[in-house]
């Protein structure tokens, strides 16, 4: 395999970790929000959706990376979409075979993984340029980051909206559920709240850094 100069990335821990935090597809890049908000009204749905997306992401990244020298530049987007659609069809039938209840709960959103911009974005921006190993690790990182984000929303929404997590009662029966949290507006509010929290943490960190710098310059 010929090596393209100064484009190949060394596989490090960072290749994996970037998707989890620094470039988290949901909280930082705000990509693929439709499934994030639509299926997170319970923790179980969030886990299933996260794993399905993880599988499609890793499989399509691998294939795109393997075929990257064969795909003509002009039709690359169409090719990526067809590759992704193939894997989504597989996932669709597998979930249908494993659990029909889950399939009905997720509805059209399994098939809509095709239109998830996280996956196309990875294929275009990373897998089409990097070696297979780096692509796989990066895709796993992104997929895990995506799943974590789904879980962040799913648990909060299920806990506040129904008082349960994965169906187990957490709050006592005196707890009055906030039904709005399971309904569509709750999705927007919870994601907005998470983004506020992350922005607050980021700004506090920056202020601390500034303060530390100020202290060292004053001291010397």
């Amino acid at each position: 395999m010929s090596v393209l100069p100064n484009q190949q990335e060394q596989v490090t821990l960072d290749t994996f970790m970037r998707g989890l935090w620094e470039e988290n597809p949901v909280f930082v890049m705000l990509l693929g929000l439709c499934p994030v908000l639509a299926v997170t009204n319970s923790t179980m749905n969030a886990i299933a959706m996260g794993l399905a997306t993880l599988f499609v992401l890793v499989a399509s990244s691998t294939l795109v990376s393997l075929l990257r020298k064969m795909i003509p530049k002009q039709v690359r987007i169409a090719t990526y979409i067809i590759i992704i659609a193939t894997f989504v069809t597989i996932v669709d039938y597998v979930i249908q075979a494993i659990s029909l209840d889950l399939y009905n709960a997720l509805g059209a959103f399994i098939q809509l993984i095709v239109a998830n911009c996280v996956i196309l974005g990875r294929a275009e921006a990373y897998a089409s340029k990097q070696k297979v190993s780096a692509s796989i690790i990066n895709a796993i990182g992104m997929g895990v980051g995506f799943t974590i984000a789904l879980l962040c929303l799913g648990t909060v929404r299920e806990l506040l909206g129904a008082g349960t997590i994965l169906g187990y009662q957490i709050f006592s029966s005196n707890f009055e559920p906030w039904v709005v949290m399971i309904l569509p507006p709750g999705g927007f509010f919870v994601l907005g709240a998470w983004l506020l929290l992350f922005e607050y943490l980021k700004q506090r960190k920056e202020q601390k850094l500034l303060a530390a710098e100020g202290a060292t310059t004053n001291g010397s």
């Binding site: 705000l30 507006p185 927007f188 509010f189 994601l191 907005g192 709240a193 983004l195 506020l196 922005e199």
Partner: peptide
Amino acid sequence: SQGAAMGLMLAG
């Protein structure tokens, strides 16, 4: 709250 967070609250 400037940026995306406020947009999401509005959408909510």
